[in-house]
């Protein structure tokens, strides 16, 4: 399996980077003013010194920074993310509750961005320098320059407030008691605006890349050969050009996994979606450092996993890698 070997080798190189992230973020958080216990005390409205010391011992904050870091890394290996003082339950539990929303948002946005980018990019490339191309390219440029949170707010004004077609926020109608199929429909309706908001900037990038690589590939010899053989234009595009033009897009998806996760912080805050990004924002505001570290760890893992899958897909699409295993 040279294909899997290639992806696994790439996976191995991300382990040192993961370690750098964990150690770096842990060290960074040592500079934070106040620890979890301070945040907790602020919530409780103060407490006497004995209680404070007990709390510090309970959260293991009485040891030196090096010892705590060692402990933290050791616990991470066992997938134990510690305890969130603010939410009053294990961090892993808090994150698992929030993860599905973010995964759904990312997956649907990625799908929309890829499909939209491929279709529009292909359309623009096939009518290069004519009006459809100019229109598509201009719209792409505008999407690229639009701040996502603003687009979300404006979408809310138009589709939720003025037209009343879509809900303005949240993950589902809580009081409505939808079950089964209708619950899915309800969630889907809630995800339309957030998905569009997160996807459009990526769509604009994919569209530009797709257009450029379509133009580049279509001048190559093998396409000319196919054309000379009398293969019809649609088949040339779908079978010959598209597959090669897809390669740079696939690479970008890997790079964008982390950008998208960052973008979902903002989008989830705009639409009050109970996802990982919003959890990160809340953790920052409430100084819940354990949760923050947990989110960093899970996000990094998520990005690494996406990149692993992208490598597999890339190797699958590009026979040169399959042959050489590299």
């Amino acid at each position: 399996m040279p294909l899997l070997g290639f992806a696994l080798r790439r996976l191995l190189t991300s382990i040192p980077s993961l370690l750098i992230i964990l150690v770096g973020v842990f060290v960074l958080l040592q500079f934070a003013p106040g620890d979890t216990v301070d945040a907790l005390l602020a919530q409780m409205g103060g407490g006497d010194i004995a209680v404070i010391e007990n709390l510090r011992r309970f959260y293991g904050l009485d040891a030196s920074a090096t010892v705590r870091m060692g402990r933290y890394l050791l616990r991470l290996v066992q997938l134990d993310l510690g305890f969130s003082a603010i939410y009053g339950k294990p961090v892993a539990e808090v994150i698992v509750e929030r993860l599905p929303v973010t995964l759904l948002l990312m997956a649907s946005s990625l799908l929309l961005a890829l499909l939209g980018g491929i279709v529009l990019g292909t359309m623009a490339a096939r009518r290069v320098n004519k009006w459809p191309d100019a229109l598509i390219s201009t719209v792409g440029l505008l999407f690229y320059a639009t701040p996502s949170f603003w687009l979300g707010l404006m979408g809310m004004v138009v589709f939720a407030v003025k037209l009343g077609w879509l809900p303005s926020g949240g993950y589902e109608e809580l009081g409505a008691g939808h079950v089964g199929f209708w619950r899915l429909v309800d969630i889907a309706r809630h995800m339309v605006l957030p998905t569009l908001t997160l996807a459009l900037i990526f769509l604009s990038i994919y569209l530009r890349i797709m257009r450029a690589s379509m133009l580049e590939v279509s001048t190559m010899d093998f396409v000319q050969t196919a054309r000379a053989k009398g293969v019809d234009e649609t088949r040339i595009v779908t079978r010959h050009v598209l597959r090669n033009a897809l390669l740079p897009m696939v690479t970008l998806v890997g790079l964008h996994a982390s950008t998208m996760l960052g973008g979902s912080c903002v989008v989830e805050s705009v639409f009050t979606l109970p996802g990982l990004g919003r959890l990160a924002y809340e953790a920052v505001v409430q100084r819940d450092l354990n949760t923050l570290l947990g989110i960093v760890f899970i996000s990094a893992l998520l990005v690494i996993i996406v990149n692993f899958l992208v490598d597999l897909l890339y190797a699958r699409l590009d026979p040169r890698i399959r042959e050489k295993g590299r």
Binding site: T13, S14, P16, S17, L18, I20, I21, G24, V25, L28, L29, F31, A32, P33, L255, S258, T259, L261, G262, G263, C265, V266, A280, Y281, V284, R287, L292, I295, V296, S299, A300, V303, I304
Partner: peptide, 23 residues
């Protein structure tokens, strides 16, 4: 390059939130 990878794996905006939270 492993350091660069580390910065690219960690979402930009998340790191930004961390830096703002700390400093």
């Amino acid at each position: 390059m492993r350091l660069t990878d580390a910065f690219q794996i960690l979402p930009n905006f998340l790191l930004l939130l961390l830096l703002i939270a700390v400093f």
